[in-house]
């Protein structure tokens, strides 16, 4: 029934598409090294956790092989067999290190590090231990204190939201108040009882708003002054700096005074003896002066124009 032309076109379409699919499949197989000659190596790990068959083996971020097999050895360790195509074998040397990396984002992988690709090739018979870097567990460890703090915050919130908590009491009171408010026209009316009072209060509130604005302005100016004062007091050339300088100066002077005082103490000890001698001389002088004073008094009394007649002799 179908014409020859239709049969031909359909045949061509089916064959071409199937050939394309097969070619794509073969190309992928080739790129996946399915036809490549593979070298096998063995690694060992304490645990098989995070290890899976088909897991990639990377060198410098480039996939060079795959985990082929996982086995449990007689010693209870996990033996990992990896396959690497011959063309990448130069990166698997005896001194190469193998690390199982479990990144926070992305799939786990085995990372190979080789310093010297010219070194001796790793033998299948040599089983190399593998290190593990576990990003997830690291993050969990770091996050632990944070989690504890969050836990305590959650506890506090729990306490706050408790039926008997202060917060709930406040909410209950607010409800009561709201109910009361809903029954009156306004809170002011409820408070003052008349509308005039309310108007007056509104005016007052407006004035308060104006005052608040003025106060705001003043506060801003004060802020400015405070900033300046800060600069004057705390700045590089401010009072504090000057006082500091003076204090340093005074400290130096005090040190010099200390030495002077020491000298004065020794001098005063010397002076003490001298002072006692002076006291004696002074007493003698005082007595002499007192005698002279009496003499003068007698002379005055003996003179005729003096009111007092009485003359006393020494």
């Amino acid at each position: 029934m179908a014409s020859k032309s239709i049969q031909y076109k359909v045949g061509l379409f089916i064959v071409t598409t199937i050939v394309l699919i097969i070619l794509a499949g073969l190309f992928i197989a080739y790129k996946k090294d399915l036809f490549a000659d593979l070298a096998m190596y063995r690694l060992q790990s304490e645990s098989g956790e995070g290890l899976t068959q088909g897991m990639p083996v990377l060198f410098s971020g480039f996939e060079i092989g795959k985990v082929k097999d996982l086995e449990l050895s007689d010693k209870g360790q996990v033996v990992i067999t990896i396959t690497v195509p011959r063309k990448h074998v130069r990166w698997i040397r005896e001194e190469s290190t193998f690390t199982l990396e479990k990144p926070l984002v992305g799939t786990p992988r085995i990372v190979v590090r080789t310093e010297n690709p010219e070194g001796k090739e790793l033998s299948y018979n040599k089983i190399v231990p593998i290190k593990t870097i576990d990003d997830i567990n690291e993050v969990i460890k770091k996050a632990q204190p944070l989690v504890e703090r969050i836990q305590s915050v959650a506890d506090n919130i729990d306490r706050m939201t408790n039926a008997d908590s202060e917060l709930n009491k406040i909410i209950a009171d607010t409800r009561k108040m709201t109910k009361m408010l809903s029954e009156k026209k306004s809170l002011l009316e409820m408070a003052t009882g008349d509308k005039k009072g309310q108007e007056t209060l509104m005016k007052t509130l407006e004035q308060v708003a104006a005052i608040t604005e003025t106060v705001d302005g003043t506060m801003k100016r004060i802020d400015g002054m405070v900033a300046k004062a800060d600069e004057a007091v705390l700045g590089d050339k401010g009072s504090i700096a000057i006082v500091n300088n003076i204090l340093t100066d005074i400290e130096g002077k005090f040190k010099r005074l200390d030495t002077l005082i020491d000298n004065a103490i020794t001098m005063s000890a010397d002076l003490q003896g001298t002072t006692q001698d002076i006291n004696l001389v002074r007493k003698e002088v005082e007595e002499t002066i007192s005698s002279v004073n009496k003499l003068i008094q007698d002379v005055r009394n003996s003179l005729p124009f003096e009111q007092k007649k009485e003359i006393k002799l020494p």
Partner: peptide, 19 residues
Amino acid sequence: PLTVDILTTQIYFTAVQLL
């Protein structure tokens, strides 16, 4: 054989004409 015939015609209408 008829099925194959109809099948061919249908593939022609469905896929080849649309290609």
